[in-house]
Each structure stands twice: as C-alpha cells, then as structure tokens.
Amino acid sequence: MRGGCGASGTVAIMNIPVELRYTKDHEWVSLDGNRARVGVTDYAQEALGDVVFVQLPTLGDEVAQGDVLGEVESTKSVSEIYAPVAGKVAEVNLALEDSPELVNGEPYGEGWMVVIELSDPAAVESLMTSEAYAALIEG
C-alpha cells in the first residue's frame, strides 16, 4: 500500500502476527501451499482511517510482483495495493464490496483482499519477517 496519507504522530502498539510475511508497502502475505492470501496490515488500516471502498482485481488476472492489485479508499485518502508476489489472482474477497470496514476491523482476518496462486512459492521467502516489518514501522 502506498500513497494517501501516512500515519503521523506516535506509532500505537500494532498487531503484527509472527506467522505472516510483509512488504515495505504494508501488505501481509499468508502462504498455504502455492496460495498466498494478501491483505493490508494493522498499521496500514490505522494510517488509512475508515475504509469506505476497496477496488479489487479480476479473477484470473496475472500479476507481477509490485503490480497494482487494487485501491483502498478511506474518507481521507486513496492508496494503491501492490502484489507482494507474482502469480494468478485465484480469489477476491467479495465481502469487501458491501463491507469495506472489515479492512479496519479485521485486517488479518475477514478483511483479506485477494488470494494469489504463486508461480514460485519460494518468492515469499524474499518478503519481510514480522521482526523486520516491526523494525520498519517503528523506524
């Protein structure tokens, strides 16, 4: 996620699950076989403010690492979401169409955005660990 407003002021205590991998743009990835579930982090949702609209990719889209996956709009800003890994869009979270607030309420749960079928599951290894991500946002 990039663009829009950054968080300002002090960093509140953020939830950063250890079992996930992260990007510097505040996406998280949960790997299950060759399927990577993707969402934005607790830090990201806090910085965004109340999410009112999520634009997701089309099923079957092929994405390269770093491609724009979609957009998240809050009452104050628009931010892009980037593909943390390359592959094919295998699922999109249709619940976000009517309930985008799930991104705020459950960023690592019901607020997930897409599932990408990885062309190379090992690519996830290149992403940040929870420790590295915590260091980034506390930077």
Binding site: C5, S8, G9, G49, D50, S74, T75, K76, E101, N104
Partner: peptide, 19 residues
C-alpha cells in the same frame, strides 16, 4: 493529528470518522 492552518488537529478520535 494533522497540521491544519497552523494548528495541530485530530483527523479523528479513536472512535473513527464514520462512527
């Protein structure tokens, strides 16, 4: 907090803008 016309103002309280 965000800068606004020379003041520091809260964009929202923990309640959130929509609420």
């Amino acid at each position: 907090m965000v800068p606004f016309g020379g003041w520091e103002m809260p964009l929202s309280y923990p309640t959130g803008t929509l609420e």
